[in-house]
Amino acid sequence: TTCTGRVRAQYRLWDTFAGQQMSGEQFFANDANTRRVAHIIADAIYERLTGEKGYFDTRVVFIDESGAKNARKKRLAIMDQDGANVRYLSDGRSIVLTPRFSPNRQEITYMSYESGQPKVYLLQIETGQRELVGDFPGMTFAPRFSPDGQKVIMSLLRDDGNSNIFAMDLRSRSTTRLTNSTAIDTSPSYSPDGSKVVFTSDRGGRAQIYVMGADGSGQTRISFGDGVYSTPVWSPRGDLIAFTRQT
């Protein structure tokens, strides 16, 4: 601790074989920020050793469900990746689902039943300001940001029972329809470079995983296993796709 009451944290990463320092930094913080400084240091060491960005100084957005069995509440919540500093972002008066971070981690897009039917919203984390993402006829759901944060991709369910995928430019508010099928196309997710979209569709009978260009071109099925596939998402490197499967 310094004479001003601040905490000084210093680290050095040493290569014992080469006999030289690989990295080292010094930080000053008040008591309230010492945990975060530790996470920043862990990230720096992790990246220097692996060549990949660390995840220690990150947060998790999730749905907190609480209350009696016949009166459950679902609230948007956020916490540090280790479970500390839980904070609620909604009051539980409306059902909320599928929160997703923006690339800059300052906004969340999610689905809410606030208007009586599912609609996609944006939320500024620090200010709490919310806005509706397009007043479309029908239900909107399963939103995700594009890698540059300029678009939100989502599913739109119309009265005919078909669900198709649309992308909205958040600056111009213009929308682009990416799929046009008589099936249920949903759960879109951009590749890390923004050039492709993975999604699920039951156009083949059961929900399977498909990939298309970011403009909707070249829609190709990539899963052929038994069961129902859902919620695909690309890995940060773009070499893997995670998903759930119900058999």
Rank of each mutant, 00 (worst) to 15 (best):
S201F: 06
I78M: 09
F62W: 11
G92I: 00
K151C: 04
R173M: 15
L89P: 09
L156H: 03
G54W: 00
G204P: 11
A44P: 00
R72S: 14
T247L: 06
Y110A: 01
T231V: 11
G128Q: 14
V198S: 10
S102E: 05
M139D: 11
K196M: 13
G213M: 01
P192T: 07
G24R: 08
Q219Y: 08
I78R: 05
V152W: 00
R203V: 07
M168I: 08
L89G: 13
D64S: 13
V197N: 03
F27C: 15
Q106R: 14
A77Y: 10
D148V: 04
A32T: 12
Y88E: 15
D215Y: 07
T182H: 13
S181N: 14
G238P: 02
T175I: 04
D43H: 00
Q10P: 01
T200V: 10
P143K: 04
R221A: 07
S90L: 01
M212D: 10
Q124R: 10
M154H: 07
S191I: 05
I184F: 14
F243M: 02
P147N: 15
I41K: 02
G116H: 10
V198K: 07
F17H: 15
V133G: 06
C3L: 08
S66C: 04
I165T: 02
K53W: 02
L240P: 05
S102F: 07
H39N: 13
